[in-house]
C-alpha cells in the first residue's frame, strides 16, 4: 500500500470512528495538540454533512428540534457515509434510517415526513419541462383516447402515507400563515409534490385521482388509469381530472401506445 493511501485511510478512520491513534502517528505536535487538530477535521466533516441533511430535511428539524436532529444526523453520517462527491444526493436514506431508530419511535409519522421531504429536495433540482397545450390533445382521434400514455413532470412526485404528511409538511413551512391545526389521527394522505416557479409545494389529491395519476406515472394507459380511478370514485369525471393535471403541469407530455 502506498504511504499516501495509508495516511488517507488513517485520516478517514480518525474522522469517522474517533480512533485518532493511527492518524496521530503521522502528525507533528504534542499529543494533546494533535488530538484537537484532528478534532477540527472531525467537526468540519460532521458539520458539513449535518448541514446538508438539515437543508434537505427542514420539517424534520422543526419536528424533533435542532439538538435531537444533530444527534440523529451524527448517527446517520456514521452509518450511511457519503459515497458521492455530489452533496445533493447525500441523505436519501434518512427516512429509512429513522424508521427503526429507537429514539424516534414516539413519532411514527417521522419516516414518512422524511421520505416526503426527500421527494421535495429532488423536485427542487429536477429537470425543467415545459407544459403542453391542451389543444394538442384535441388532435387525437377519439378512438385512440384509451391508448394515451402520459409523462409525469420530472419535477413532480406522487407519495402516499398512512399519516397526514401533507398537513404536517404545510404547517411546518416557514412561510405558512394559515391554519396551524393539525389532527394526527386524520388518517392517510395521497399527495403530489410539485414545483411552481421554483418553489416546491405539497398538495393533497383525492385518492381516486392520485391512483389514476399513479397508474399513468408507471406507464399504464389512460384507459387503465380511468378504471383504477373510477373503481375508487364512480362519480369522478376522468376528462375533467385529466384537464386539471395538464393545466397544472403535473402531466407534461403524451404519446399513443402501439
Amino acid at each position: 500500500m502506498s504511504a499516501l493511501r495509508d495516511l488517507q485511510q488513517d485520516f478517514m478512520t480518525a474522522v469517522f470512528s474517533a480512533k485518532k491513534a493511527a492518524l496521530a502517528r503521522h502528525l507533528v505536535g504534542t499529543a494533546s495538540e494533535r488530538a484537537w487538530r484532528i478534532d477540527i477535521y472531525r467537526n468540519n466533516a460532521v458539520s458539513n454533512l449535518s448541514s446538508a441533511l438539515e437543508s434537505a430535511y427542514p420539517v424534520i428539524v422543526k419536528l424533533v428540534g435542532a439538538e435531537f436532529f444533530r444527534y440523529a444526523a451524527q448517527e446517520y453520517i456514521s452509518r450511511y457515509p457519503s459515497v458521492s462527491g455530489d452533496l445533493h444526493v447525500f441523505g436519501e436514506a434518512f427516512g429509512a434510517f429513522l424508521a427503526p431508530f429507537p429514539p424516534a419511535a414516539q413519532l411514527p409519522y417521522l419516516p414518512d415526513v422524511a421520505r416526503l421531504e426527500w421527494l421535495c429536495h429532488k423536485a427542487y433540482f429536477a429537470a425543467d419541462h415545459a407544459p403542453f397545450a391542451l389543444d394538442r390533445l384535441k388532435q387525437v382521434a377519439p378512438e385512440h383516447y384509451g391508448r394515451l400514455q402520459f409523462r409525469l413532470n420530472p419535477a413532480c412526485a406522487l407519495f402516499e402515507s398512512a399519516f397526514p404528511v401533507d398537513r404536517i409538511w404545510q404547517v411546518n413551512q416557514d412561510h405558512h400563515t394559515g391554519d396551524q391545526a393539525l389532527d394526527l389521527s386524520s388518517g392517510a394522505a395521497t399527495v403530489v409534490v410539485k414545483r411552481e416557479m421554483y418553489r416546491v409545494a405539497v398538495n393533497a389529491l383525492p385518492r381516486s385521482e392520485w391512483c389514476g395519476l399513479h397508474a399513468l406515472s408507471t406507464g399504464h394507459t389512460f384507459a387503465t388509469a380511468c378504471d383504477v380511478a373510477l373503481q375508487i370514485d364512480p362519480d369522478l369525471d376522468p376528462g375533467a381530472a385529466l384537464r386539471r393535471w395538464v393545466e397544472e403541469a403535473i402531466l407534461v407530455d403524451f404519446s399513443i401506445s402501439a
Binding site: 485511510q9 485520516f11 474522522v15 477535521y41 458539513n48 447525500f90
Partner: peptide
C-alpha cells in the same frame, strides 16, 4: 478515500 466522501 475508499469511495467515502468527507466533503471537506
Amino acid at each position: 478515500v475508499d469511495s467515502t466522501n468527507l466533503h471537506d
